[in-house]
């Protein structure tokens, strides 16, 4: 090992210890997180994860010296202001927790819009003044109405993926629109010889629910269509059987306790239908009670 300062050696050793003592090692990007917020997040993660900022070279060293197989691959995922996260949580769960803890933040000049940024129509807190011109200048449709500045239409002023200009960033802040999400970006996580990147770590809960429902529906369909008896399929099979039996009884005019009233009513309404046709031709062709 080349000559390095002893504090650096110690830091690498401590990172290595953390790597060895946790199942999951994540590589995060802490760019744009204000210090107080980072403090808060660290505190809330305290029992489940350790966040460690260090120099890239030291982290690389610690990763490459670790005996864990493939963990050195994490090196390729250092972005922005990299930090390491150590936890025993399932990496998918870690990602979910970090995403959920992100908070809204004001736009900064030069930031990339994470989604379409829309200025909604409606009243603003602004009194008439030069701000009207400034709004119009950045493309926000505004006018004065009853002593207030009002935005006349919903307006997408920055599309997803576009860079936010200085003027727009400052206007969004004045409008109290905070389009950015700030928090710990987990870029990749290592567990058990595998490095998972954020695209893999993303969980779509709605899709999971939809899949659960789909699986159940498929199982129910299969049970009913193949006439396999279980407690889910039997009620449906009973309903289907009942429908078929009722159809047969009603279509063949078989009087049963369940069909009797309906068949009588059917005869009656058929009679009324014929009577109405008949009385349409000649009112005297029907008796008084059938005349409308």
């Amino acid at each position: 090992m080349p000559h390095v300062a002893s504090w650096k050696k110690e830091e690498v050793e401590s990172l290595k210890e953390l790597i060895e003592s946790h199942d999951v090692v994540g590589m995060a990007n802490l760019s744009d997180i204000p210090a107080p917020q980072l403090q808060k997040m660290r505190r809330s993660l305290k029992d489940s994860a350790v966040v460690k900022m260090s120099r890239k070279t030291l982290m690389s060293l610690a990763l490459s010296e670790s005996k864990k197989e493939n963990i050195a691959d994490l090196e390729g995922h250092m972005e922005g202001q990299p930090a390491m996260i150590f936890t025993d949580m399932n990496p998918f769960k870690l990602y979910k927790i970090l995403e959920a803890s992100k908070t809204d933040a004001p736009a900064k000049a030069g930031s990339i819009a994470p989604a379409d940024i829309v200025v909604p129509k409606g009243d603003t807190a602004f009194k008439p003044g030069p701000i009207l011109g400034e709004l119009q200048k950045v493309g926000i449709p505004a006018k004065i109405d009853k002593g207030k500045i009002v935005i006349t239409n919903d307006k997408t002023i920055v599309a997803e993926g576009e860079t936010i200009s200085k003027e727009i960033a400052s206007m969004l802040t004045r409008l109290e629109i905070f389009p950015m999400e700030v928090g710990i970006d987990l870029v990749a996580a290592y567990e058990d010889q595998t490095v998972y990147t954020s695209d893999v770590l993303t969980i779509d809960e709605e899709k999971t629910i939809a899949d659960v429902q789909k699986a159940f529906t498929q199982a129910l369909n299969l049970s009913v269509n193949a006439v396999i008896f279980n407690k889910e399929s039997v009620p449906v099979l009973l309903q289907n059987a009942n429908t078929k039996a009722m159809n047969l009884a009603l279509n063949a005019d078989v009087l049963t306790s369940k069909t009797r009233d309906m068949i009588l009513a059917k005869a009656y309404s058929q009679m009324l239908a014929v009577a109405s046709e008949v009385s349409g031709k000649d009112a005297d062709a029907v008796d008084d009670e059938l005349r409308e």
């Binding site: 009722m246 047969l248 078989v254």
Partner: peptide
């Protein structure tokens, strides 16, 4: 006997499948 007579002229498959008027009415 009445049942059999009633079903005599009926195509059962069809009668089973055909939505009966009254079936639609909430019983």
């Amino acid at each position: 006997k009445a049942l059999i007579a009633a079903l005599e002229d009926v195509d059962i498959e069809e009668a089973i499948a055909k939505t009966a008027v009254a079936a639609a009415a909430p019983a």
